[in-house]
């Protein structure tokens, strides 16, 4: 699903955000990426989404080589990814339901499926009752859950969630992690970055990756 070999990411200003990483993620894997702020967690997810490209090394996501010059194929690849951005990236002036549906409008779904998927996803994050609220009227925690609903409603092959529980209370956080886990049974891979190590479920089949200053400092396979 993801194959990274000797991948580094160096920003134009000289910051090396990712430094020589090797990584393999298989279908149905649940991967937690932990590490202090600034250790490169977000940068890693950006590489997987094709927002940034490796400056050294080779990276393959869902069979697609992640290189500059492949932009239209990478755009297509993104339709198979469910991204949850650290800053949510919800679209203002639109309702919660519209935001969730917007992630699916250009997928090849039957018309009725759109509403049904959105409704299901909102129910799973506990926000059915907010479906017709404008997103700018939501709290941080609610916005985060809308972002999660948008990502999972599309039924992606790969979920990339950047600190998805960062703004949630414990009950909600556990509920969201359970939601993500429900996807790995359908062979969807889930990669979650988080600070909240205490919530990580160790008994389930999951990988744990510790990042430090752009390098993979250790890795524990579940």
């Amino acid at each position: 699903m993801i194959k990274a070999k000797g991948v580094s990411l160096r920003f134009p200003n000289g910051t090396v955000a990712i430094n020589n990483i090797d990584l393999q993620v298989e279908p149905g894997d649940m991967v937690y990426v932990i590490g202090p702020s600034g250790s490169g967690k977000t940068s890693l997810l950006k590489l997987f989404m094709g927002i940034e490209y490796p400056t050294i090394g080779s990276l393959e996501v869902l069979g697609q080589q992640m290189d500059k010059g492949q932009t239209s194929r990478i755009r297509q690849l993104r339709t198979s990814i469910g991204p949850v951005f650290q800053e949510f990236k919800l679209i203002k002036g639109r309702t919660v339901a519209e935001n969730v549906m917007l992630g699916m409008r250009f997928l090849d779904l039957p018309q009725g499926q759109l509403k049904e998927n959105a409704h299901d996803a909102l129910a799973k994050v506990g926000l059915e009752h907010k479906a017709s609220s404008l997103v700018e009227n939501l709290s941080w925690g609610e916005s985060q859950r809308v972002a999660i609903a948008r990502a999972v409603a599309r039924k992606p092959l790969l979920i990339l969630a950047d600190e998805p529980t960062g703004n949630l209370d414990k009950d909600n956080a556990i509920n969201i992690l359970e939601l993500f886990k429900s996807f790995i049974d359908q062979k969807t891979s889930v990669i979650i970055t988080t600070h909240a190590t205490h919530l990580i479920d160790t008994e389930k089949h999951c990988k744990l990756i510790q990042m430090n200053k752009g390098t993979l400092s250790w890795e524990r396979l579940g």
Binding site: S80, I81, P83, I91, G103, R105, F106, R150
Partner: peptide
């Protein structure tokens, strides 16, 4: 701009 960028990140085709 922001909305357009988000749609691109979600994989929306340019024509859409």
């Amino acid at each position: 701009k922001e909305q357009i960028n988000t749609l691109r990140l979600l994989g929306a085709p340019e024509l859409f």
